[in-house]
Design a protein around this nucleic acid. Sequence first.
DNA 1: GCAGAACCTGACTGTTGAGTCATGTTTCAT
DNA 2: ATGAAACATGACTCAACAGTCAGGTTCTGC
Lengths: 203, 203
Amino acid sequence: MSDWNPSAPLPAPKTRRGERTRQKLLNAAQRQIGSKGFAEASVSTITAEAAVGQGTFYLYFRSKEDVLRELVLRMGRRLRRHLTLAIAGAPNRLEAERRGLRAFLEFVRANPDLYRVVAESQFVDPAVFQRYYEDFAASYRAGLMAAEARGEITPGDADVRAWALMGISDMVGRRFALWDRDVPLRRIAEAAHALILAGLSPR
Amino acid sequence: MSDWNPSAPLPAPKTRRGERTRQKLLNAAQRQIGSKGFAEASVSTITAEAAVGQGTFYLYFRSKEDVLRELVLRMGRRLRRHLTLAIAGAPNRLEAERRGLRAFLEFVRANPDLYRVVAESQFVDPAVFQRYYEDFAASYRAGLMAAEARGEITPGDADVRAWALMGISDMVGRRFALWDRDVPLRRIAEAAHALILAGLSPR
DNA sequence: GCAGAACCTGACTGTTGAGTCATGTTTCAT
DNA sequence: ATGAAACATGACTCAACAGTCAGGTTCTGC
């Protein structure tokens, strides 16, 4: 009759030391999973990198899957903050779009680990992965609808548009910010933005 | 001094029986990996589903990674064929774009296994995954440049455009063809195509 | 219809790594 | 200052699998 729930998050650390250890583990996991991938990164390589004992891991996370989940949430928060700052003060939606795209590419270039972690979550915990994108899509969609109401963009299906635009960022980011680490992002962002602005049709 | 090479593909089956067995294994692997994911699908579940002995697997594939590689190539061939057929006879590039997008979404809906297999290859064999997209991008890019020369589309960076357009298909496909198995694809394809045609800017 | 090549088998081996636990150390509220 | 709660440890257990191999079956060209 107790309310014990096996999938509830583990209780947060109660002391400063505990919180520090948890963060060390999260950072180590991010580097390990980000560089070697989820399958190759074992709990023991993670604890070794964090310089804590094997068993310590299980004081803060139920499993390797659990720590990945946590990292996806962390990535979402960081990216959201980064984009919010980049967009703040844009005079209109199209300019916000421009700045956001550029900022996203720069974020990916600067945080390849987190990018990979999110991508891997797709197979480790589909629900979290889906949630990650749904959340971005929802706020993207809201932004597009508001802009449409203000007449800053043409009318259109905001839902499909939101996913399509995320797809552009995602793929262009992978190709030009992650795989190709040298190409200047300004040029890429401008080219992609031009497509988003005017499409392909001459008319 | 012999020309033995440990990473050369295994010799092809010499008899009809051998070829049949290899195909049974490929199909079983596609279903297993497509439904449970690469990590959960073991060689023994694959051989069980194919109804062959454990060791038979290693007559045709060096490892689980190897069979995944093969499946990615198969997916590439099938998708390419599907798209070529769908686009054949389109009067111009923009119409080809329209038909291609729609055909892609339909392919994803019909072949969720193959879609997942390709996505997993990203972490199992990055080179093959990258190659898969680079190949599509190259032919996409060529198509866009030809269309631009004919004046069917506005001038622009064909490379970035190719990746951006693939990104749209990829993400919209995942969201509306894979995750949401009920929504009618015609509507989605039209909405995305409208964005590709004219962009967001009112002008 | 025979020889030799091709194919098939599944029990076995060895490794890997997740998760546990008994014991020890540190923190902190009182 | 102290004791109880929180935190930390790493050797150990145990299950899961990848990959092997010695021995058996089926095919195919002649």
